[in-house]
């Protein structure tokens, strides 16, 4: 087994690294897009009480639909390749980010906001200096959940022509090659765990006060 693995890397290092890069890029870009969409929309939802119910309801349902279904459903509409893949990934990632943004913002205690107003902050200052910072831990959790979802679905997206490490796994399945399965599986796992670790470190840096609470 070890020999097979080493042989693989010796012969296919380039295509392997390409797959890693594709996987990382498609994941990162989708995550950023999902944040850019999800966080502002989440904020907007908290401002319009009636809209909020509809929006959270809609995204709650979107969250339940199996990711594979979302991914493959886009093919009759958008064809194969990176575009439908990224669209699917963003669709799958927005719900946790948006919903956590809504909950995070709503959970900031009223007396905290009143104090901020009471000592003389404008509404804008209250939002940016107090409300959002205090909602950040919750939003971050949503981003983390989204990221896990994205990396997993990006793995599947190899099947619809988006490239990435999933290709190794599918090829391994098709050709019955254990070495490819293991290399693919471990690479994806490592990628996923590394990303989770990075986000944890990032959250520790941004939200130092949370550490102090422990």
């Amino acid at each position: 087994m070890l020999q097979l693995t080493m042989a693989y890397f010796q012969n296919n290092m380039e295509s392997f690294l390409l797959a890693v890069r594709q996987h990382m890029w498609i994941s990162l870009l989708s995550l950023l897009a999902a944040c850019v969409i999800g966080i502002p929309c989440g904020y907007a939802a908290t401002r319009y009480a009636r809209g909020e119910k509809w929006i959270t309801g809609f995204f709650q349902i979107l969250r339940i639909i199996p990711s594979l279904a979302v991914l493959i459903l886009l093919i009759p509409i958008m064809g194969t390749g990176i575009k439908p893949a990224m669209t699917a990934l963003v669709l799958l990632a927005v719900p946790p980010i948006l919903m956590n943004t809504v909950v995070g913002l709503k959970e900031v205690p009223d007396f905290m906001l009143e104090t901020a107003r009471g000592i003389g902050m404008t509404e804008r200052q209250v939002l940016w200096k107090v409300k959002f910072p205090l909602a950040l831990p919750m939003i971050f959790t949503g981003v983390k959940t989204a990221m896990v979802e994205i990396i997993a679905s990006a793995t599947l997206a190899a099947k619809i022509g988006a490239g990435g490490l999933g290709g190794l796994i599918f090829t391994g399945l098709g050709l019955n090659r254990t070495d490819l399965l293991l290399i693919g599986g471990i690479s994806v796992a490592v990628l996923s765990l590394t990303a989770a670790l990075l986000l944890d470190v990032l959250s520790g840096l941004i939200m130092r006060y949370k550490k102090a609470e422990k």
Binding site: V148, I151, A152, T155, L156, G166, I169, G172, L173, T178, L181, L182, G184, G185, I186, V188, A189, S192, L193, A196
Partner: peptide, 21 residues
């Protein structure tokens, strides 16, 4: 929680050599 963050396809791939398809 660590295992949960690993994509399912990857876990399937890792387990197949042991328990088959």
């Amino acid at each position: 929680s660590v295992i949960y963050s690993v994509p399912s396809l990857a876990l399937f791939a890792l387990l197949i050599p042991v328990t088959g398809l």
